[in-house]
């Protein structure tokens, strides 16, 4: 075992992160709210809650429902809109001691491109994540439902924005691999996999869904096996980094995702348990790697595929 502290640094294209632990969009506000509660300098970065062109009040409550090993949400992209973000939020996120990745969603393809263009003009934002996969707004899933739509938006966004661009895709598709490949071909820096699975909850006494829209997104530890498989399959089929998302709550979860093919991860629902959970996970990663004698965490990325190749030979 090496005496040197294991290196947790990872790279997503040109973006270097001090460790692979990011917060997932929609689960950690815009980051700055929690800068007095947690040591954000100890995590890889914050991916902000989705910003849309216009302010959105979000869906009427109830917005969440607990499930076995997870939860459903139908928040509906509540956010201050672009102007409110730039005026009230941007100055504060630029003071964060970690990279801030701006997540945006459009109501139309043109919205996405305009948001990407505006994001590209901001100083101090580390990257742009395109939320092509929100299940809780009308048409939100359409942008990642076909390789053509997803690839076109990524390609057009990259033409107007110099930031690293991540495409956040939906698991609610027949086959995610061609969609991921289309994003890669369009030049995406990385793929954020995955957004929530579609689900619902029923109030049988009222004979109706808990949620006003009838559908919601499932997240939390219960979706980890499905998300892990998607990360494993997609990372085998693309050459760009994959960011694993889905049910991550411990350092062990992070390492499993990395072995399955993720270059970095996003902690989502588990952030709700403790604003310091992301930094605790980052600290624990170092301990686990040291115990195991791993010098660099990025060596683990995709290890399952190399193992598989050996088996096949």
């Amino acid at each position: 075992m090496s005496d040197a502290a294991p290196s947790l640094a990872v790279r997503l294209g040109a973006l270097e992160l001090r460790n692979p632990v990011l917060t997932a969009s929609g689960t950690y506000g815009l980051g700055y709210e929690f800068a007095r509660l947690a040591d954000l300098g100890a995590i890889g970065g914050v991916v902000g809650k989705t910003v849309t062109m216009q302010e959105r009040l979000g869906n009427p409550p109830p917005r969440t429902f607990e499930t076995a090993g997870g939860m459903l949400n139908s928040i509906g992209l509540m956010n201050p809109g672009w102007d409110g973000f730039v005026r009230d939020v941007l100055p504060r996120v630029l003071d964060l001691p970690c990279p801030f990745v701006l997540n945006v969603a459009g109501e139309s393809e043109e919205d996405f491109i305009e948001l990407a263009r505006r994001a590209g003009q901001l100083d101090g934002v580390a990257g742009l994540e395109l939320n092509l996969s929100c299940p809780n707004v009308a048409g939100g899933l359409d942008f990642s439902s076909s390789p053509e739509a997803a690839g076109r938006i990524v390609s057009r966004a990259l033409a107007v924005c110099d930031l690293p661009v991540f495409a956040k895709l939906s698991p609610n598709v027949g086959d995610i691999v061609p969609i991921a490949q289309a994003c890669e071909a369009a030049g995406a820096t990385a793929l954020s996999l995955i957004n929530t699975f579609l689900g619902t909850a029923i109030d049988w006494r009222k004979r109706k869904s808990i949620f006003s829209r009838g559908v919601a997104g499932v997240s939390g530890p219960s979706i980890k096996p499905m998300a892990l498989l998607i990360v494993m399959r997609v990372s085998a089929a693309v050459g760009i980094p994959v960011i694993g998302i889905g049910g991550i709550a411990t350092a062990r979860d992070v390492l499993e995702y990395m072995v399955a093919g993720a270059a970095a991860v996003q902690v989502g629902t588990a952030c709700f348990l403790d604003p310091r959970l992301p930094e605790k996970i980052a600290h624990e990663l170092r301990e686990l790697l040291a115990e195991e004698g791993v010098d660099r965490i990025d060596e683990l990325t995709g290890a399952v595929h190399r193992q598989q190749e050996q088996v096949e030979r």
């Binding site: 929609g26 689960t27 950690y28 506000g29 709210e33 929690f34 509660l37 809650k49 979000g58 409550p61 917005r63 969440t64 949400n73 928040i75 509540m78 952030c271 709700f272 604003p275």
Partner: peptide, 8 residues
């Protein structure tokens, strides 16, 4: 603590 926007 303000992270999820569920309790509005």
């Amino acid at each position: 603590f303000g992270a999820c926007a569920g309790c509005v």
